[in-house]
């Protein structure tokens, strides 16, 4: 598992480096396409935001016990 984690981080850094090397500002439509490593940052923070946000919604609004619908029908 440890090795896999390091492999993951290494390839992430590698892709960011590739991003900087093969930087192609002509292909960008919006400003964030010009930031090297934007997708890495967006992916990571998006992932955390989705998990934390959804869990919060679940806890406070949406989740019920498993037999919730069984007695009403």
């Amino acid at each position: 598992m440890q090795r896999l984690t390091w492999f993951g981080i290494a390839s992430l850094v590698f892709t960011v480096l590739l991003d900087i090397i093969f930087h192609d500002p002509h292909h960008a439509i919006n400003w964030w396409h010009r930031l090297p490593g934007f997708d890495a940052l967006f992916g990571f923070s998006g992932c955390i935001a989705i998990i934390v946000g959804s869990k919060w919604l679940g806890k406070h609004l949406l989740q019920r016990h498993e037999k919730y619908y069984e007695k009403g029908e």
């Binding site: 993951g8 892709t15 396409h33 992916g43 990571f44 992932c47 955390i48 998990i51």
Partner: peptide, 24 residues
């Protein structure tokens, strides 16, 4: 090049976030 690089970044970073919050 940029499509492949940005997709790979996105996916790797997601995986990183996943293993970080695995317990949750």
């Amino acid at each position: 090049m940029d499509h492949v690089i940005s997709s790979t970044q996105l996916l790797l970073a997601t995986a990183f976030g996943f293993f970080l919050l695995l317990a949750k």
